[in-house]
Design a protein around this nucleic acid. Structure first.
Length: 211
DNA sequence: GTAAGGATGCGCT
DNA sequence: GCGCATCCTTACG
């Protein structure tokens, strides 16, 4: 099991996972951009779960994402949920929108774009990097939240400042050739938006939810 | 009040 | 490939 660095990384500190030096946590600016761009660029980034004191418990490398953008996108919660129940989606970028579905699953989304434009990236799969069994099956949006102990208490969490959950840059450059775009999963009701190729995954990763 | 359905996963067939 | 687990939100009455 790789050694985990104890301590809360800021935008200027460094983070080590095993022998790997990771860049500072992702800033607000990273998320305040076009959702498709953020969804693609999140591939290869690290999802970091720490305890209340900031000691890192688990790290996963993002292998699959989906973009949900605006009230016009019929698959986006903002198009059919009441505004107050998905208020986080309408708020500032860099916050977590976590919701419950199918009676037993929590799903993690990262809010993007500007305040007042409801959009987010759903994290669908991560590869176990540290603090997780190498064989851990994290290839599914509900599997990874379960493994990382992410539930409704994380809804609205500011991932730019949080002590217990954030995103970090592994310094890895992922070329367009390594990314596959596909239609989103489980949104067959979304009419003209159901076939939008807004799902992205690392082509060579064995950790994506389905090919 | 009540019913229907959902950005899912698992086990069984 | 199908059914189920199991519950929050919504729409409708």
């Amino acid at each position: 099991m790789p050694m985990l660095t104890i301590g809360i990384p800021t935008e200027t500190s460094e983070l080590h996972v095993g022998t790997k030096l990771m860049s500072p946590r992702l800033s607000r600016r990273f998320f305040q951009r076009n959702t498709l761009k953020v969804a693609r660029e999140l591939l290869g980034k690290y999802l970091v779960r720490a305890d209340a004191r900031g000691s890192i418990l688990m790290v996963g490398r993002i292998a699959e994402t989906e973009a949900y953008q605006g009230v016009k996108d019929k698959a986006c919660h903002a198009s059919w949920r009441k505004r107050e129940t998905c208020a986080v989606l309408w708020g500032d970028a860099g916050h977590a929108y976590v919701y419950f579905t199918y009676g037993l699953h929590w799903l993690l989304n990262l809010v993007t774009e500007r305040e007042g434009f409801p959009a987010a990236v759903l994290v669908r799969a991560v590869e176990p990097i540290a603090g997780l069994k190498p064989s851990a099956k994290l290839n599914g949006p509900a599997k990874l939240t379960r493994a990382l102990a992410i539930d409704g208490s994380f809804n609205g969490e500011d991932l730019v400042r949080s002590r217990r959950l954030w995103l970090a840059d592994g310094g890895e450059k992922i070329g367009r050739g390594k990314i596959k775009a596909a239609k989103r999963v489980g949104v067959d009701y979304a009419q003209e938006y159901q076939d939008k190729p807004w799902r992205f995954y690392l082509k060579d990763s064995p950790f994506v939810s389905k090919k």
